[in-house]
């Protein structure tokens, strides 16, 4: 018998938390992107677990769309990093000090 879906759900929640924490604390744009990917993966895991619990395919389809979005986001995100790097040669958010928030 398979383990309860709740195990995977909790695992996903923890993964989401790690990703969110990293996104908020790390200062390197590339690492922050990676944390974003962690968060999206946690979402995917959640969807799949629910899909199994509910015995419903919608969850898995959603994962499919999340992956498309992740790919699109990475493309543009890395494009922005490259554009900035051309100018500044840095990817640390802290060094983007022209604007003070």
């Amino acid at each position: 018998m398979n383990v309860p879906a709740a195990w995977y759900l909790v695992l996903a929640a923890v993964l989401f938390g790690i990703g969110a924490f990293g996104l908020l604390t790390r200062r390197s744009a590339l690492i922050m992107f990676m944390c974003l990917e962690l968060m999206l993966n946690a979402v995917n895991l959640t969807f799949v677990s629910f899909s199994r619990t509910l015995s419903d395919v919608a969850g898995q389809v959603s994962v499919f769309f999340v992956m498309v979005v992740a790919a699109a986001e990475v493309t543009v995100g890395l494009g922005i990093v490259v554009a900035i790097f051309r100018r500044r040669r840095t990817t640390s958010v802290d060094e983007l000090s022209e604007m003070k928030g």
């Binding site: 895991l45 898995q60 994962v63 499919f64």
Partner: peptide, 17 residues
Amino acid sequence: TLFGVAVAFVAQSADFL
């Protein structure tokens, strides 16, 4: 991590994913 998630997918009968 991504591979871990893939493993978890397989374990939850989402082979295609």
